[in-house]
Amino acid sequence: MVAAMTPLPVIGVPVKGSTLDGMPRGVPVATVAINNATNAALLAIKILGAHDSKWLIEMETYMNNMEEEVLTKAQRLEAIGYEDYLKQ
């Protein structure tokens, strides 16, 4: 109902156990996966970036760091093998 009353973008986070059939045509709500408020927040920041580049730069940095994080993990996994990796 908030989306019906404001022109601002509304991101819905379905909390486990809720029904999602109540989204009528004409009142768009962006949705993320069930319980995934993290993604909702990231999406909100991306929306902020559309009108203020400050948030675009922040988001770029975050995405870069995310790539770095995965690469570091991959490197470790390849180096010590999956069995030892799981034990840590």
């Binding site: 109902m1 989306a3 019906a4 991101i11 379905p14 909390v15 156990g17 809720s18 009528p24 909100a44």
Partner: peptide, 23 residues
């Protein structure tokens, strides 16, 4: 600039099947 709405139970907060009539 943006609203994040949690939708528990009937999921009426972000949107609603009754929005069009509710307005």
């Amino acid at each position: 600039k943006c609203i994040i709405a949690g939708a528990g139970g009937a999921a009426h907060l972000p949107s609603s099947s009754s929005t069009t009539t509710t307005i």
